[in-house]
Design a protein around this nucleic acid. Structure first.
Lengths: 245, 245
DNA sequence: CGCCTAATTGACAAATTTCAATGGTGGTGG
DNA sequence: CCACCACCATTGAAATTTGTCAATTAGGCG
């Protein structure tokens, strides 16, 4: 999980209002950089490449991928606008970053970034806080992969996506899933078929309602939350199987 | 994985040779702190506690634990002498730290630590590098939990322990496992029984040889390495099941 | 509008968990 | 120093979950 998420929406205008001013947010560092583009399916960088740049996602969704020798694939995270990639690397990228959708991003040299951070006492805690957030996310993912069943994994994922949408847009009840079922499966440590079955199960239980292939409506966020398995266990909090035979 | 491992053995004497000198290693910061003790099974701090201190393990082994509401337990890492705990936290501990064995450690206030790091341009990159290492470890664990089977998990774990021992003592072929099978199971996302079966399987295959309950000899490190599943797949690299029916 | 690919669904297989019983180690007290 | 006890680990059998394979369906893009 080397990808860093913005915890909050930041005010870009304030951040870089005057030229020459010390940037007040990490994003502001990227503001001067040209915006690059990448097509859906294309690779931003490969695992093992010399880590020359960091990136800030401006638009679209990327996936962080690690591949085994024998072809097994793991997605350790998805990146959304505002997220940074490549901050916590040393020499080489430890994973590949690929575009799920057509995406736009800004690029920043690693050395310049290090220097900018080093030179700015106000930016350092921000970067540190991001690293901490990312550690927390990684740890949650370990908990999910270690001890949650397929249903809990799916619900946790949908819930996290819902919360992300709600951070952007108040009271959103629709979740966009631009990635394929295979991407979701490789993120949750499941197979395509199991992901599909869990979506079917949640649909039948009236918790969600698919809108095309890459979007779904959350009908019962509270149920999703219960089924995600993070909460204290209450006796009437059984998994869905019992709800439809 | 908020616990940070030392990549290298560091020379304490050089590090803090002269009083008043800027510390040249993160460990040197702790050198003045008194050494505390904790009994096997005791808790250093609880998940959710206000995060007031960081710790450096001096002797013994600790485990990092997260517990679900319904009792499911996840161990996200073990800590050994030289490791730091609590660096990448913000307000509260996100996990508990418990002593696997009787352990000795040094304590450091979070605020003082932040200030010391902030004041020292030479320490900052060291801390950053540790965070990066820890991220890499977390990512590897996600790969393990996501896509490795029980045998691969067990071999990966033993191999990592072997490498750690070899870092301390050249050509070590014995691995100490002071934790219980339940600890190992909760670390690898398996059950006690599966861990036990895998140890039996590896023993029967002549890869390892148990020495009491908490120690084992590595007879074929290369086999362990192959079976860990990280390498490129070669045709004669089948799992052990075929080796003993 | 139709094709191509992705997704769903079902039947079956495999891996791991669960449950239950046995075995062994290490620690403690006699 | 030995014996016993408690706990931990091992082993086996059955159950469950998820994966695999194969066939069908259906979105979405041209």
């Amino acid at each position: 999980m080397y990808a860093l998420s913005t915890g909050q929406q930041t005010d870009r205008f304030q951040a870089s209002a005057a030229a020459g001013e010390q940037p007040q947010t990490i994003e502001a560092l990227f503001d001067r950089q040209a915006i690059c583009q990448i097509d859906a399916g294309a690779t931003l960088f490969h695992e093992g490449d010399k880590a020359t740049h960091l990136f800030e996602v401006v638009e679209g969704v990327l996936r962080i991928v690690k591949i085994f020798g024998d072809g097994r694939r793991v997605i350790t995270g998805f990146l959304h606008p505002g997220d940074l990639v490549g901050v916590s690397l040393k020499d080489r990228y430890l994973y590949s970053a690929e575009a799920v959708t057509h995406a736009r991003f800004r690029r920043f040299g690693r050395r310049e970034f290090q220097e900018a951070i080093n030179a700015s006492p106000s930016l350092r805690p921000l970067l540190f806080a991001r690293l901490c957030d990312e550690m927390a996310v990684a740890q949650n993912q370990m908990v999910l992969l270690s001890r949650k069943n397929a249903e809990e994994r799916m619900c946790s994922f949908l819930l996290a996506e819902l919360h992300r949408e709600q951070r952007a847009e108040r009271a959103a009840a629709t979740v966009e899933l631009p990635m394929t079922r295979l991407d979701i499966a490789d993120y949750l440590g499941l197979t395509i078929e199991t992901v599909s079955r869990m979506i079917t199960r949640l649909t039948r239980a009236g918790v969600i309602s698919p809108v095309g292939r890459h979007s779904l409506r959350i009908l019962k966020a509270s149920a999703l939350s219960r089924l995600a398995g993070d909460e204290e266990e209450c006796e009437d909090c059984a998994p869905l199987v019992s709800m439809y035979g």
